[in-house]
């Protein structure tokens, strides 16, 4: 996928002025969401997520380790993203660039701050042994909006996950053996949405060309607790600034879109569990 031409960017921006997009979607409308669970038998949990032509894989592996000094009674989370050269000729082999670090960080913060995983319940012995949950992300085909797809994949893989067998005597995990126990997860699904600003318009779930045409982006992770919505992670990206009014408007849109996306997620999960 080559860098988007100035002409295409201008057309995207002209279209948007009339409230239209190349693929006929509404400004805030997501593409079709398809989830596949259990894509690796050797993972504790795994999922493949397709948002239109964007295709990603996420896996959860677990191990037992010493807790961090500042959280002696809590499990540990780590998240690494690899933007594979397989998924786009814009990505190169070699050490991770900023983009893959950012995707990893945004998965990490979306999962950690949303309270989706009860890390206190992942303590085996305070100060000595806790579970570590490692979420690894791979892009398979990048056609925009990798971050939102990544967090959907992480949540799906966590729901899919079974706890591995832990040998208490040896203090070690029996790799390749699992219990029937699921991870301690909250019922509220965290949803991460990245809003893109193009020529004064705000859109969701951009294709690659729309990402290229955008001036600024704002990623928000939303959860719902007791009927009230909260923003649990946020990051403004790219060089252009956002006005206070625009930002406030985005917060309000995000709360509304949350309900639509949770429904979309649940529907895709039901389909995935059938297979």
């Amino acid at each position: 996928m080559m860098e988007t031409s100035e002409l295409t960017k201008k057309r995207i921006s002209d279209y948007l002025r009339e409230g239209k997009r190349f693929d006929n979607r509404k400004l805030l409308e997501f593409r079709d969401l398809k989830i596949e669970l259990g894509i690796s038998k050797n993972a504790e949990g795994s999922a493949r997520v397709k948002l239109g032509k964007t295709d990603v894989m996420v896996g959860v592996k677990m191990d037992v380790m010493e807790p961090y000094k500042d959280s002696q009674n809590e499990g540990v989370l780590s998240s690494i993203a690899e933007l594979l050269p397989m998924s786009s000729d814009r990505f190169e082999s070699g050490p991770p660039g900023f983009e893959s670090i950012e995707v990893g960080r945004l998965i990490d913060r979306s999962i950690r701050e949303s309270g989706f995983v009860d890390f206190k319940k992942l303590c085996i012995k305070e100060g000595e042994k806790v579970w570590s949950v490692m979420i690894d992300f791979y892009s398979i085909n990048d056609n925009g909006n990798l971050v939102d797809a990544a967090v959907i994949g992480a949540v799906a893989a966590l729901i899919d996950a079974k706890m591995p067998k832990y040998n208490e005597e040896k203090g070690k995990v029996e790799f390749g053996e699992w219990t029937n126990k699921k991870l301690p997860l909250s019922k509220s699904i965290p949803i991460t949405m990245t809003f893109y600003k193009i020529n004064g318009k705000i859109i969701l779930d951009p294709i690659k060309e729309e990402e290229d045409a955008s001036e600024a982006k704002l990623t928000l992770c939303i959860i719902e607790e007791n009927g009230k919505k909260y923003i649990t992670a946020a990051q403004k990206g790219n060089e252009a600034g956002l006005s206070i009014e625009d930002t406030g408007k985005i917060f309000e849109i995000a709360e509304k879109e949350y309900d639509i996306l949770v429904e979309k997620f649940q529907k895709a999960m039901k389909e995935a569990e059938k297979e």
Partner: peptide, 12 residues
């Protein structure tokens, strides 16, 4: 992929 095997492979 890190999760393609039972004992996690370090990514990369």
């Amino acid at each position: 992929m890190s999760f393609s095997v039972t004992e996690r492979k370090r990514p990369g």
